[in-house]
């Protein structure tokens, strides 16, 4: 094994996986697992690259549902009527779900028998599916050729005038406010909530709309409703390619992880883990990232991609260096209190 390159090793490993899964197909013929995800174009790609080949290899059928919803997971587990066998979860949702006991532990001996997944990707009851960044995007045609370069510029309504938008959630926004106030990247956590809200006060009146979902911030920027907004990195690159006057800055972005987990009391936990294992295939993952630029930590995947393309990903070294790791643990512990304060601050 040591003499093999990582790439050949992974190709070899994934065909072993396939062979192993194939052997099980006879037993698993009538099983359908329900995999809950974000829906939309993402679901189509997942179906083509993972679900259909998985069904072909194992006989286990996959039914995809949407959307990702922590309240729904809570309702399922608490009522004992668990429909999902596997669900996507955001980082802080994982922390809350794990603490509340809504997830089954992951059997890493089964999904990662050769122990190649980096530690960063493994939690007790969830596996990293993808990474994405919340960064700021802006209209390149609104500031007379100048480009905002930091959250301090985002807050600077004199040099970069016009309405802005931020997500209707304290998550991420408190961090951005601290960065705008001059706090260095590695000193963000634990968050000084008072300081963050004081900084947000300055910008409050320049934000006519607080976005609720990814489609909305894209629309706000493209329609020219706002000149700058926080946004998810993957949503803006296709627009830029289409020639729309928009761009993003990685500086001060929040690198976030999204996970896959098995709800407590899921009907087919073993088959769900087999599918999880299947999702770790580097070749299919590389194809996936080419379409949806939210890379996971599947070993061997990055080596299959063009370096120029890797440079546009949130986990590319030069991009990762100017961002901070969004601390899901801090948020899981503090969200209730901060959310209440956020609602009072925002809605009155």
């Amino acid at each position: 094994m040591v003499n093999l390159t990582r790439r050949t090793f992974n190709v070899g490993a994934s065909s072993l996986v396939l062979a192993g899964l194939g052997a099980r197909s006879a037993a698993a013929q009538d099983v359908t697992i329900v995999v809950n995800g974000s829906g939309g174009s993402l679901a189509e790609v997942i179906k083509k690259l993972f679900e259909d080949p998985f069904t072909k290899a194992t006989g286990i059928k996959v039914r995809a549902t949407a959307p990702v919803s922590l309240p729904k997971l809570k309702a399922m587990v608490e009522s004992g009527n668990v429909e999902w066998d596997l669900t996507e979860l955001n980082g802080d949702d994982v922390a809350r779900a794990s603490e509340a006991g809504w997830l089954e532990p992951i059997d890493y001996a089964l999904i990662d028998p050769n122990n190649v997944l980096p530690e960063m990707a493994k939690l007790r009851d969830a596996v990293v599916r993808a990474s994405y960044s919340t960064v700021f995007g802006y209209r390149t045609d609104r500031f007379g050729g100048k480009a905002p370069k930091s959250w301090a510029d985002f807050w600077d309504v004199k040099n970069f005038p016009g309405p802005r938008s931020l997500e209707n959630s304290p998550k991420g926004n408190l961090e951005f406010a601290l960065l705008a106030a001059g706090v260095p990247l590695d000193k963000i956590y634990p968050i000084d909530v008072d300081k963050a809200f004081a900084k947000l006060d300055e910008l409050k009146d320049h934000i006519p709309v607080w976005w609720e979902n990814g489609a909305q911030h894209v629309q706000l920027l493209v329609d020219g409703e706002v000149n700058m907004t926080s946004c998810w990195n993957g949503r803006i690159s296709p627009l830029k390619k289409e020639g729309k006057p928009v761009d993003i800055s990685w500086n001060g972005g929040a690198l976030m992880l999204s996970y896959l987990g098995i709800p407590k009391g899921a009907k087919h936990p073993t088959e769900a883990q087999l599918f999880l294992k299947y999702r770790m295939d580097p070749k299919a993952s590389a194809e996936f990232v080419k379409i949806i630029p939210y890379p996971g930590f599947v070993p061997g995947m990055m080596e299959l991609l063009e370096p120029e393309f890797v440079a546009t990903l949130p986990t590319a070294p030069q991009n990762a260096a100017v961002q901070f790791r969004f601390d899901s643990g801090w948020w899981a512990q503090n969200l209730d209190k901060v959310q209440k304060r956020w609602n009072d601050w925002l809605l009155i």
Binding site: S69, L70, P71, K74, R96, S169, D336, Q339, K340, N343
Partner: peptide
Amino acid sequence: IQVHQSLN
């Protein structure tokens, strides 16, 4: 907001 964000 209470159902989806605060889980309250």
